[in-house]
């Protein structure tokens, strides 16, 4: 071992302070949901609604359960990716609820189209997008802050999963506000638009979650403090 590394080890050891162990990914995901869901309830309370009720249909319930399941499972997977040594296969876990979610919306869209013969006007419903973005804003900030406490080993994958989790939970919340939107509106303004933004965030993954941020955020310093 060279003198420098020996010295470096000594400095690191001197800088060692007790650290709070990261809870298991499922616990962190639960914590994230426990912060995001009350916020969504607040958005639901404050956001102007066209209808006070929600549709009592199996399709709506399935869509909501699938969106929430996608959010929770994607969040667990995102938190697992910042634990060194975790299997990458966990990233595949949200695929099933995501497929159910998209299939539910697509099926409704197809039924409506086959019944009416044309798609509803989509542009007039563009207000769904800002509502979904507002709903997803805080959960996105919280999940990124939480992810930065882990090891940024796969920044793009981690960000993709975090974006999926945020898209899921934001859609879950905002669908109670826009409960009677048609399938096409939900598909375009709630799903495709949000997934488009999620894709952009994924491309910027290494700027959102990176060793640079982790080092900067580390309160336990090494030298120079």
């Amino acid at each position: 071992m060279t003198r420098n590394t020996t010295q470096f080890i000594r400095e690191l050891a001197q800088a060692a302070t007790p650290v709070r162990r990261l809870p298991a990914p499922w616990l962190r995901a639960s914590l994230w949901c426990s912060l995001a869901l009350p916020y969504l309830a607040l958005v639901w309370l404050l956001w102007p609604k066209a209808h006070a009720s929600i549709p009592a249909t199996g399709s709506f319930a399935l869509e909501q359960v699938a969106a929430l399941a996608t959010a929770v499972i994607a969040a667990i997977a995102a938190f697992a990716t910042v634990i060194p040594g975790s299997s990458k296969k966990i990233a595949l876990a949200p695929v099933v609820p995501l497929a159910v979610w998209i299939a539910t919306v697509a099926t409704r869209c197809a039924h409506e189209w086959s019944g009416v013969g044309h798609l509803p006007p989509l542009l007039v419903h563009c207000a769904c997008l800002p509502a979904t973005l507002v709903a997803g804003g805080l959960p996105a900030i919280v999940i990124v802050a939480m992810l930065r406490r882990g090891a940024p080993l796969m920044p793009h994958l981690t960000t993709a999963l975090a974006a999926l989790a945020t898209a899921g939970i934001a859609n879950f919340g905002i669908r109670f506000v826009h409960a009677f939107d048609s399938g096409a509106v939900v598909l375009v303004w709630h799903l495709l638009a949000v997934f488009g933004i999620a894709l952009v965030l994924t491309a910027l993954g290494d700027r959102i979650v990176s060793w640079r941020h982790t080092l900067a955020a580390s309160t336990a310093s090494t030298v120079g403090r």
Binding site: F8, G85, G150, A151, L215, S218
Partner: peptide
């Protein structure tokens, strides 16, 4: 030294219930 520094800043992510070496090798 980069690895040691990284181990230092993410040491909270190690779960003592799991093996240490895979955690270190991933970093």
């Amino acid at each position: 030294q980069d690895v040691l520094m990284s181990v230092h800043v993410v040491r909270a992510s190690y779960d003592p219930g799991r093996p240490f070496t895979p955690w270190l090798l991933a970093i």
